[in-house]
Structures are given as structure tokens and as C-alpha cells.
């Protein structure tokens, strides 16, 4: 394991400020009405909670645990138990803002959208991520992101938290 330092200057609080500004602009320019925030467990929930506060959104925060929708169940089996999904509002015809910490292969977002559609049919889904990193395997893109970075397949970035929130970079070279 060795640290890669070229992104060490990414400050989560600064990124959240930028995301909040861009998201507010996105909501207005796209005419999203009373949008509901949904965080993907666990990092996405931390981020979504902060954004909800910044934007003064009153609808309670939705939380998704996509374990039942992962596409690797037959390869790695059940994930350890964490809190179940909870979407405490009506999904149908709603503008949703889906929030995750790191956008990488896109498979998590695919699974999250599949799960959301089992609750109902939203009007729109906007994707917000803290870090958009290279390595996409599906045609999925973020509408709003804090930072866009290029990492090698053996390099990883992770959000640690909840207090304080910080990014950890590491590599799995052997």
C-alpha cells in the first residue's frame, strides 16, 4: 500500500460548498419542484444530509442500501447487514436528487436506480457525487460533481466520516 498524494489537496468542505451552489443552480435551471434527496449508504447519506441542510430542503432525507440490487451477489454473496433502505416520501412523479460519495464503475448507481423504481416512478433523477473518478463501466454520468479526477484501476479513493468528512487515497499495488 502506498499513498498517492497528487489529490491530497481536495478538501471535502470546499467541495460540498461548490456542489451546493451548483446543485441549487441545477434545480432552478431545470425547474425541479420540491426535490427530495436520497443518499446511498453510507458516504452518500453523509453528503446528502449536508446538502439538505445547505439547501434548506424540508422533505426528509431518503436513504438507500442497495445490497439487494447489487450485480455481484452470485460472485460475492450477501453483504454484511447495515441499515435497510428508507424512503419516507412518495416517489411517484417526484424530482429526486440521488447522492453518492464516489462515482466509479457506475454499477452502484445502476443498482440504486433499479431500487428506486421498485418504490415508484419518479419524474426525474439528478445524480450528485462528491468525486467523479475514472473507470466507468456503464453509461452513467453525474449531473453535479465536486471534483473529477483520473485514477489508475489499482488506485482508490474513499470518503471517511461522518465527522469530519475527508477523502482517503490509496493504491493496492503489490
Amino acid at each position: 500500500m502506498s499513498d498517492t498524494t497528487q489529490h491530497a489537496d481536495l478538501d471535502v468542505e470546499t467541495l460540498i460548498d461548490e456542489i451546493a451552489t451548483r446543485l441549487a443552480h441545477h434545480i432552478e435551471s431545470h425547474g425541479l419542484e420540491d426535490p427530495a434527496l436520497i443518499g446511498i449508504r453510507t458516504g452518500g447519506v453523509w453528503l446528502a444530509a449536508r446538502l439538505r441542510e445547505r439547501l434548506g430542503i424540508e422533505t426528509p432525507l431518503g436513504e438507500l442500501n442497495i445490497a439487494f440490487y447489487r450485480d455481484d451477489f452470485s460472485r460475492i454473496g450477501m453483504h454484511p447487514t447495515v441499515e435497510p433502505s428508507a424512503l419516507p416520501f412518495d416517489i411517484d412523479n417526484r424530482d429526486l436528487v440521488l447522492v453518492d460519495d464516489i462515482l466509479y464503475t457506475g454499477r452502484t448507481i445502476r443498482a440504486a436506480m433499479n431500487e428506486i423504481f421498485d418504490y415508484g416512478r419518479p419524474r426525474t433523477i439528478t445524480l450528485v457525487v462528491l468525486v467523479d473518478r475514472s473507470g466507468r463501466e456503464l453509461p452513467i454520468d453525474a449531473n453535479v460533481y465536486g471534483a473529477r479526477i483520473t485514477l489508475a484501476p489499482d488506485e482508490h479513493v474513499k470518503l471517511l466520516g461522518p465527522d469530519p468528512l475527508r477523502l482517503e487515497f490509496c493504491a493496492t499495488r503489490t
Binding site: N65, A67, F68, Y69, F73, M78, T81, P84, S85, A86, N114, E115, F117, D118, Y119, G120
Partner: peptide, 23 residues
């Protein structure tokens, strides 16, 4: 305990519009 905890998560599925997961 793991069985009980997992069952807790599946209870949520039974209360949704689509009571099915693709597992």
C-alpha cells in the same frame, strides 16, 4: 442474529409498491 437482522431489511421490501428484489 444475522438472520434476524437480514429479515429486518427484507421486511421493508414487503411494505413497498414492488415487493420484490432481484437477489
Amino acid at each position: 442474529v444475522a438472520i434476524l437482522d437480514n429479515a429486518e431489511r427484507f421486511t421493508v421490501v414487503g411494505e413497498r409498491a414492488v415487493k420484490k428484489v432481484p437477489l
